[in-house]
Each structure stands twice: as C-alpha cells, then as structure tokens.
Nucleic acid binder design. Sequence first.
DNA 1: CAATAATGACACTAACAAGTATCATTGTAT
DNA 2: ATACAATGATACTTGTTAGTGTCATTATTG
Lengths: 203, 203
Amino acid sequence: MSAREAARPVRKRGRPTAIERVERRAQILEAALPVFLDHGYGNATVDQLATAARVTKRTIYSYFDDKAGVFTAMVRTLATTVSSDAPDADTLESLATRIVYRLNSAELIGLHRLVIGESTRFPELARTLHDSGDSRHIARLADHIRSERGQDAAPRAQPLFSLLLGEEHRKRLLGLSPPATAAEAAAHADRALALLGLLAESE
Amino acid sequence: MSAREAARPVRKRGRPTAIERVERRAQILEAALPVFLDHGYGNATVDQLATAARVTKRTIYSYFDDKAGVFTAMVRTLATTVSSDAPDADTLESLATRIVYRLNSAELIGLHRLVIGESTRFPELARTLHDSGDSRHIARLADHIRSERGQDAAPRAQPLFSLLLGEEHRKRLLGLSPPATAAEAAAHADRALALLGLLAESE
DNA sequence: CAATAATGACACTAACAAGTATCATTGTAT
DNA sequence: ATACAATGATACTTGTTAGTGTCATTATTG
C-alpha cells in the first residue's frame, strides 16, 4: 500500500545496453530489501518486488530463476558490499566506533533480521553473512589491538566485538530502539574499550 | 513431509472436560513451534499446524482466531514459561552458567529467530520477549553481583550479559553452531566473568 | 437422561500468488 | 539495414491456503 509498491515501471522499452542491464539488476536487488523487510520472505510476493523495482514481473524472471533467487542474490550482494566498503580506520577507537555505527544501521539490522529468520531455509546465506561480517570485523579489531596495544591484548578482540554489539544491538534486532547516532556509537565504543582496558590513556 | 506433519488426529471425539481443553490448547501451541521453525511464520500453513498437533483444522479455529493468533499465543506462552521457570541459582557463577546454557538451547534460539524475523509485523511480541528474557536476566545478574561482589560492580551486569551471549550466541542464531553443552556453558561463563574481574578468587 | 459443547471428517469457497504465454514495441548489436 | 534481445502490458494457468459450513458422533454437564 506504500508509495513504493504503487509505483509503476518507468523505464522505456527496448533492448538495454550491457551497462543498463547491470544497472537494472542492481536496481531490482536494491528495491527488494525493503519489500522483504516489510513482509518477510515468505509473505513477500514477486509482484511486490516487481512494482517496487518499477519493473514488470516478466523482467524479474529474466534476471532470476525464482523468488528464492532474488533473495539469495540480494543478501549476497549486500554482504559483499558491506565487507568491501570497510574504509581503513586510523585508530582502534575510530574503528570500533565505525563498527558500532554500521551494525546498528537500518540496512544491516534489516539484513540480519531476514537472514536470521530464514537461516533454517537458507543456511548458506547465514554462513555468507557471518563470514563477510562478524569474522571480518573481529579480525580487523584484532589487527588494530595487536599493533596499538600489544600482542597480549589480541585475544580480547572477540569479547570486544560482543561488547560493541551489546544489549543495544539486541534491542535493535527486535525493533525496540532506533539506530544509533554517530555520537552514541562513539560513546558506546569507548565504554566497551574501557571495560576491557583497551582505551588509550589520553590526556 | 516429516513424520510430524504426517500424523493424524489421535484423540477421541466428544466434548472434552475443562482440564482436557486446557491441555489441548497447550498441545496445539507446543506442536506449533517446530512447524513455525521449519517453515517460517509466513510459509507455515494452518493445516500443518493442525496435523502436527494431531488435531483438525476446525479445532484450531475453535481455540484461536487465526494463524496470527496461534503464533502470538505460542510466543507469549513460551516467553512467560521461560521467565517463570528460572530456578534461583546459589552463586553468580552458577547463575551465569544457567543463563548461557538456556539461551543457547534449541528452543530459545528458535523462538528468538522467529520473533526477530517477524519483529516488524509483531512488534509487541518482540517487546514481550525482551521484557521476560533479557531484562529479567540482567536484573538477576545485577542482584547477584551486588550481593556477592559489592555495589560498585553492579553496573557491569549488562556488559556481562552481552559477554555471556557473545559471538557464540550470534552463531547460534544464524544456525552456524550446535547448542552448548553444560560444560561449554560453564567454561564460557567463567571466561566472561574473568574478563570483567567478577570471578571469585577461589583456591 | 436430556441438552448441548466440542470434536473429527471432509467438502467447499474465495482469494491470492508463482510462474508462463503472447504480442507489440523499441533499440542494440552486427 | 536487419535480426533479435529485452522489455512493458496483460491475461492466463495452476496450485495453494485461510477460513467456513455441515453433519454425525461423543461425552460432559446440569
């Protein structure tokens, strides 16, 4: 019923260029996330996916085999995007802050909700998401800890990650709190670092 | 296709006693969890719920308004069960161990998966689950910390809870690891307590 | 013992959704 | 230029599912 769903195809007809084809594929996947989030994988319809992408159902099926194909492609694309767009942070603090901020974003929370909810039926997506998300984050934290705080502190990377998520993230997953602001993320990260004795002794 | 789904009603006909009616309601809800877990809320059918409970669809609708009614009743029942069956633990260590063990059980993991996945469409269930789960756990941890480790340590209850969940719990939600054994739960709890300086100085 | 609540069995309806088919149309590729 | 790939528009097929209706049956309740 939303404006998104009411939209009608807007592209012209005719054979698209190779570039346009890539763009359109991305456009379909991008539009798919909100639809799956609003209705859940099981209840989302292909017609809704088509309308949201401003494309006809016919076109969806020219890019993907079926509904599951759209879903898996969407998750994979987002997962790899997330893991590749990680800009190198200068300090442990800034890295921790970035992680907190990103992980509480509406986009990533939604993605996690979907994958967790469907993990029984799409186990490979759960694996993909974890490998390109948590694992990578923990490794990056370990690298920074090692170089900035010494070898001994490296085993604290995983607990640190758990604290960076914290109760806040659980509430986010359940839809009980809004995304963290940049300031909140920084404060949260500092608290977690302090608890583990990983905060730089400044001033 | 599973044996569960193939089962047929087994009860006799006729008017049940008041007690039987209560039992049957519980029986329906109990059978509903595996069905919702296997198929997801959206894809689970009322026929599957009926067959799993060894009851006819007609009977389901005599206890609940609709599919959503079965779902919400099931979650509420499980949530209150969980929060009430909490046996008082003697020490902080044993409480922490219990929490780790329970939270990684197949039952609670499944419940969380469902509620997280459907949190957009059933926000009140998310609230219920959090209130009767996390909130209560953190409060109990805080009580024990206060009485066993002193007032100052109480603020560490929430971080402690986050560490008790830890990366392990995230993997569990994604279906990437099996339930923790009792021994694993104890070891994990001790590690978390040690990290926050909350482990009793024994020996 | 009579009235009636609850059930199983089973058919049925109405809605909805996945995926396909057709066809005219447009613009790319060659 | 000409073939043809991809699309929008639209209708259609086929299967599924939520929820209801009916009726005989059983046993509780009063």
